[in-house]
């Protein structure tokens, strides 16, 4: 691939990314009131999106081979338990991550 072709390839990636980020804001401009249905989606989507993002992070975990997703499951349980107990976002994230690192480096 020549340098120009590389620039075009990266430019296409930038364009596609910005298209997906700016499109909703272009279609539903600040000046006009947002349609009721879109407002509803705006409120209903976040919880669904965070569910999707958790699964997205785990998409390459194989339940049938390797460690069968056990370190992930345990670390998520630790994260959740810590969060339900202390309700400190940073503490829960740190506990889950350290737990996961110990599990994959020393146990599995």
């Amino acid at each position: 691939m020549s340098a120009v072709q590389q620039v075009i390839t990266i430019g296409v990636c930038v364009f596609a990314t910005m298209l997906t980020r700016f499109l909703p804001f272009f279609i539903f401009s600040e000046k006009r009131p947002t349609p009721r249905y879109i407002q509803y989606l705006g409120h209903a989507l976040p919880a669904a999106i965070f569910g999707m993002l958790v699964i997205y992070c785990l998409k390459n975990v194989s339940l049938l081979s390797g460690s069968h997703g056990l370190p992930e499951l345990l670390a998520i349980l630790v994260t959740a338990a810590m969060h339900l107990w202390k309700r400190q976002m940073l503490l829960s994230i740190a506990a889950g991550t350290v737990c996961y690192m110990l599990l994959v480096q020393m146990v599995f």
Binding site: L58, E72, Y100
Partner: peptide, 13 residues
């Protein structure tokens, strides 16, 4: 190794 789990933990929280 395993530090990338910080993102999973954040989304979980």
């Amino acid at each position: 190794e395993g530090l990338d789990f910080v993102m999973t933990a954040m989304f979980t929280v």
